[in-house]
Computed example of a mutant assay.
Amino acid sequence: MKAMITGNNGAVAPYVNRELKSRSMDVTVWKRELVGIDNEEEVYRFIEETNPDIFFHIATGPIEWLEYIAKATKKLGIKLVFTSTVSVFSEDKTGPYTPESIPDAENSYGVYKIQCEKLLKEFYPEAYILRLGWQIGSETGSNNMFDFLCRGQQDNGCIEASSQWYPSCSFLEDTAAAIVDIALNYESNTYLLNSNRKYSFYDIVLYLKRLHQQDWKVVETNALVRDDRMYDDRIIMKPFDFS
Results as ranks from 00 to 15, higher is better:
residue 1 M to H: 09
residue 2 K to G: 03
residue 3 A to Y: 15
residue 3 A to E: 08
residue 9 N to W: 12
residue 9 N to M: 13
residue 10 G to W: 07
residue 11 A to L: 07
residue 12 V to H: 04
residue 15 Y to N: 07
residue 15 Y to E: 05
residue 18 R to K: 15
residue 20 L to G: 08
residue 21 K to P: 14
residue 25 M to I: 03
residue 25 M to Y: 13
residue 25 M to E: 03
residue 26 D to E: 10
residue 27 V to L: 10
residue 31 K to C: 08
residue 33 E to M: 04
residue 35 V to I: 14
residue 37 I to M: 07
residue 37 I to K: 01
residue 38 D to I: 06
residue 39 N to C: 09
residue 51 N to V: 03
residue 51 N to L: 00
residue 53 D to T: 10
residue 55 F to Y: 14
residue 61 G to K: 08
residue 61 G to N: 06
residue 62 P to Y: 10
residue 63 I to G: 02
residue 67 E to K: 15
residue 77 G to W: 11
residue 79 K to R: 14
residue 85 T to K: 03
residue 86 V to P: 02
residue 90 S to K: 04
residue 91 E to P: 13
residue 92 D to C: 01
residue 94 T to R: 04
residue 94 T to E: 00
residue 96 P to R: 11
residue 99 P to G: 01
residue 99 P to Y: 13
residue 99 P to T: 00
residue 105 A to C: 06
residue 109 Y to L: 01
residue 110 G to R: 05
residue 111 V to P: 02
residue 116 C to G: 12
residue 118 K to T: 13
residue 120 L to I: 00
residue 124 Y to L: 13
residue 124 Y to N: 15
residue 126 E to H: 04
residue 126 E to A: 09
residue 131 R to E: 00
residue 132 L to P: 11
residue 132 L to M: 12
residue 133 G to K: 07
residue 133 G to M: 05
residue 136 I to M: 06
residue 136 I to Y: 11
residue 139 E to I: 05
residue 143 N to V: 09
residue 144 N to R: 07
residue 145 M to G: 00
residue 147 D to N: 15
residue 147 D to Y: 10
residue 148 F to V: 00
residue 152 G to T: 11
residue 154 Q to H: 08
residue 155 D to C: 07
residue 155 D to E: 14
residue 156 N to A: 08
residue 156 N to T: 09
residue 156 N to D: 10
residue 158 C to T: 09
residue 164 Q to A: 11
residue 170 S to M: 02
residue 171 F to W: 09
residue 172 L to K: 11
residue 172 L to W: 02
residue 175 T to Q: 00
residue 176 A to I: 06
residue 176 A to M: 02
residue 183 A to T: 10
residue 184 L to P: 14
residue 188 S to E: 07
residue 188 S to W: 12
residue 189 N to G: 03
residue 194 N to R: 09
residue 197 R to L: 05
residue 201 F to M: 03
residue 203 D to C: 08
residue 205 V to S: 01
residue 208 L to W: 10
residue 209 K to N: 05
residue 211 L to G: 01
residue 217 K to C: 12
residue 217 K to P: 11
residue 222 N to D: 15
residue 224 L to S: 03
residue 225 V to K: 11
residue 226 R to D: 07
residue 227 D to P: 15
residue 228 D to E: 11
residue 229 R to Q: 09
residue 230 M to D: 08
residue 233 D to L: 02
residue 238 K to M: 07
residue 239 P to V: 00
